[in-house]
Design a binder for these strands. Structure first.
Lengths: 134, 134
DNA sequence: ATGTATGCAAAACATTTGCACCTGG
DNA sequence: CCAGGTGCAAATGTTTTGCATACAT
């Protein structure tokens, strides 16, 4: 049961939190907007306020349970932080999100920050792409 | 005169447009928010509506005169598109923005997109950093 | 003259917050 | 019981838009 995840994060086990976790775990889309989660909850018969969804997601983010991404288009998308680090490729035609990792890029980023006297706290790499026409 | 830039972009040469270009060219900060530009204009005695600033920036973006970036923090920053491509490092302590280029990273990105059957239309790489404490 | 630009106020949008009420442990 | 969570509505902050007026060419 994911109730444990919540307890481990120091969060009370409540219905909104459990259901939101459930939606994020079982959704086809790994990357969901707050609104998307809100609608998915409705479809499953759970009517929580949108404000609650936002609050829960913010707490989850703070607890390291989810990552928030700010892709273009003005709204945040959230994904379960159940995998190791990766970056994103967003298809501009279909909206599809592809994940990828490249250790060499990660390493180069570290080197660049280091060279300037900084350490990386966080980073965001997003490729906006289109299917090859060929 | 930068009036030519505007004409080349197919835009009428108007006072707001000229002054906004001027501010962006002469500001200490290369990366400005719409509000920041609005305030800089006021300081120079030009009172245009904030809506105009946004509209002009949107047109400039469309014309390729400026780039818009969506760093964390909810608001866009704009910079003159007068340099070749580069990525950004944002200091979380000071808000300072450092630009950098790394051809190897650029190349790796191309390879990754290509490997997945896509071509890159645009990309965003931002490192959120802190000064090395050492 | 005439198609665009602008100004202002109002709308839109995603997100956050205040506060009274509920609930998990 | 009581700290903390939730619902709702209202506030927020950024950006966009509608419409009447002003301007560049």
């Amino acid at each position: 049961m994911q109730g444990q995840h919540l307890r481990n994060a120091g969060l009370k086990v409540t219905s909104p939190r459990l259901k939101i976790l459930e939606v994020m775990e079982s959704s086809d889309e790994r990357h969901l907007s707050a609104e998307g989660i809100y609608r998915a909850l409705l479809e499953r018969g759970h009517e929580f306020g949108l404000a609650t969804v936002y609050r829960v997601l913010a707490q989850f983010e703070g607890a390291g349970l989810v990552d928030r991404h700010n892709f273009e288009g003005g709204m945040s998308v959230f994904e379960l932080a159940d995998r190791s680090h990766h970056d994103h490729m967003v298809c501009l035609e279909t909206g599809k999100v592809i994940e990828f990792v490249n250790d060499r890029i990660e390493q180069l980023q570290e080197e660049i920050a280091d060279r300037h006297g900084y350490t990386i706290e966080d980073h965001s790499l997003v490729l906006y792409v289109r299917p090859k026409s060929s």
